[in-house]
Design a protein around this nucleic acid. Structure first.
Lengths: 223, 223
DNA sequence: TCAAAAGTGTTTAAAGTACACCCATGT
DNA sequence: ACATGGGTGTACTTTAAACACTTTTGA
């Protein structure tokens, strides 16, 4: 029994303008579901592994190069075209929105959609987005997820709003800032925001090297 | 580009005799790596999904019916046989060792191996076992994993030793028991162990219905 | 009576939670 | 001067961590 193997990409970004986590959808150019908004993706080519396929499709279909790509899981297609079977492996990709600069001739074929307002998608793409979101939530407990989605220099409130968007809970501002102060790998800079019509916020940045040693030392409670 | 799709099963059980988490390995009957100890598994058949394939292979190769089957992830085979490519999806299965009763004609072809003393395995099976173990550790933080691996009635110390085996850390006995007392879904029975040459331990059991409502109420800290 | 594992409380430290006002900037 | 979001501290509650002896059974 032979399979065609597809890769689906759940490209995620955080939009600081409306504080939403968003997924990039493209308008399908081919049947089935031609013209519908769906996840970018495609078939695995000769001598590529899955992650390479995902990265290639991202470039081709969205003009995007991502810093972070993780497998979510494999899916057996529920409705196989008779005779030949299809399976797919989905990956989520994390992106700083500021770095999103698609080829202009394609930009009208792509849109960012908030996860909380996800429309009905063809195939099982809706499920795949939900699975990816859940995996991202889990990953963020053990890995420095936020810093792939935020710009290199960010104010603390932006980090807080990201967490609120990721887990869909409100966080207490004072307690959140207290928590961050205890993290050696999030460092305040001398710099502040400019050109805002309110008190400018101080910028922080993530120190990957410090994080690495810190994580190693941390022992999670087992139960 | 077409793929042959295989499923690998990481069958896990907890052995109360030596307090080890163990994986079931079988002796391969076919090339490649014929005669070597490896994970059970096989190719996905017509009109099966992955989980069904995993369950079927478990029955065929080990005579085991499992209560719990979760996908770990998909792997692109690192060394594809020229021309045709191979991918695999691995599943972990949880089993109460007391229920392990393989067909006798096959039993010499299978052995339980402690995760902490895993030998070098052919293909990338060693990696797959490690990945499955890690996923099990993560799953156990949000799901009632232990109760698939323990008998229906179990003493508390057995539960503690299971956690110690799963996370490879020693736990404080008094603090652990205090923690369990606070869980409404682990209920003491009137029954105790018999025929042990020391103070018999009280037996407990897991109440799935209580767990369901309890989990729903629980809000994990987001960061 | 001995060996072997089961069972039991208290004290201290750390982490989490609730809560309301002043600050710095642009307009 | 005002509108806007940034920034700050304290008291209380809950959870985690350290730690040693007594109990019950079979041999």
């Amino acid at each position: 029994m032979l399979f065609k193997l597809a890769v689906d990409c759940i490209i995620l970004a955080y939009d600081p303008l409306d504080n939403h986590l968003k997924v990039l959808l493209i308008q399908r150019e081919n049947e089935p579901a031609k013209g519908h908004w769906a996840l970018p993706g495609g078939f695995v080519d000769q001598s590529e592994d899955f992650a390479a396929t995902a990265a290639r499709k991202l470039r081709q279909e969205t003009g995007v190069t991502v810093s972070y790509l993780e497998q979510v899981r494999a899916y057996a297609l529920t409705d196989p075209t008779a005779g030949q079977r299809l399976a797919s492996v989905s990956y989520y990709a994390l992106l700083d929105l500021a770095h999103y600069a698609p080829a202009t001739d394609r930009s009208h074929l792509a849109q960012w959609v908030p996860l909380v307002h996800l429309p009905t998608l063809p195939f099982d793409h809706g499920l795949k987005v939900q699975d990816a979101w859940q995996r991202l939530q889990e990953a963020a407990r053990n890995q420095p997820v936020p810093f792939h989605l935020l710009p290199p220099k960010f104010p603390l409130n932006q980090l807080q709003r990201f967490y609120e968007a990721l887990y869909q809970v409100p966080l207490d501002n004072r307690n959140f800032r207290k928590w961050v102060k205890g993290l050696p790998y999030i460092e305040p800079l001398e710099e502040v925001e400019t050109n805002v019509s309110h008190r400018p916020s101080r910028l922080y940045h993530f120190k990957a090297a410090v994080y690495a040693t810190f994580r190693q030392a941390a022992q999670l409670t087992p139960y």
